[in-house]
Design a protein around this nucleic acid. Structure first.
Lengths: 152, 152
DNA sequence: CAAAAAGAAGGCGTAAAACGCCAATATAAC
DNA sequence: GTTATATTGGCGTTTTACGCCTTCTTTTTG
């Protein structure tokens, strides 16, 4: 499946407002409601659209802190890495985790309430994950930009 | 305003599916439709809910790459930092940017298509931002976890 | 170049959802 | 125990989503 400029405009508008009504979306992209809805459904089925969500205000719900953590794993079997990754998925405070070069180095993005909360996550969660050798934390002071909108 | 366990359940469900119908949401939290809708509207007005969005599949739209970039700024006036931050906001490939300790160090999350695309962003965008002294890139090899859901 | 085929668009009717209003119930204050 | 306040549930109206059919446009093929 191939998308055109109008599809990209639909994707941009849905990124900005995931609850825009189909009628309004159709008007903005100069289509009838039925034609527009058909395109959206196709974009969903073709996998361009992952899912719809609601974004919380982190500060308002008491999770204003962001830390980026470098985690090194003791050189082990592929199975050990898979176990680590499986466990990381379960940690609700971990919002991102990427494998880095080095074959056993991860970059982990953690959200937390306050320094006490981070200390708990550090000592009771991160260091307890299977195979963890070293945990190096970078605390952020302020959020300058954060978006879920990708350029399309 | 103070939220209770039922509000938190509403927030969790909306994070999972931002387009869930009010009727289904109401059923899942054991409320009538009207009572449920009123709670959602209050959560929106009180700022707990930031906004609704649609998340794209990064690979499907041709942006599978993730890089984390440390950017150091030449020690300058507060104005220079503000200018840098203002310009970073405008870069669509930058999805996150945090100020780190050191007063002039930023951590920047960049999405890109391929290595050629990243080279362009590095040399034509990041290094050209006002006051940039050093740009140190960490390329990720694989996405292990990524979510927008915060624990509530 | 024309006829046939395929794809996309628009219009319409029906079902579902959102929303405003009011009464009933539950909770809190005095 | 009574008044005041907040929260809930029910109902009618308006808006939205969605399936179906026809029309129009684009592409293919002889």
């Amino acid at each position: 499946m191939q998308i055109d400029e109008r599809d990209r405009m639909i994707l941009r508008l849905l990124q900005r407002d995931g609850r825009i009504s189909n009628a309004e979306l159709a008007e903005k992209v100069n289509l009838s409601a039925s034609a527009c809805l058909r395109r959206v459904r196709l974009l969903e089925e073709a996998g361009f659209i992952d899912h719809y969500t609601m974004l919380l205000n982190p500060a308002r719900i008491g999770k204003p802190g962001n830390a980026f953590v470098n985690i090194s794993i003791t050189r082990q079997t592929r199975e050990a890495l898979e176990t680590f990754e499986k466990e990381v998925q379960k940690v609700p405070e971990v919002v991102e985790c990427y494998l880095l070069a080095g074959q056993s180095d991860y970059l982990v993005h953690v959200v937390y309430s306050d320094t006490g909360d981070y200390e708990r996550i550090h000592s009771e969660v991160l260091t307890q994950l299977p195979g963890v050798e070293r945990v190096q934390t970078v605390i952020t002071l302020r959020e300058v930009k954060r978006t879920t909108e990708l350029p399309v």
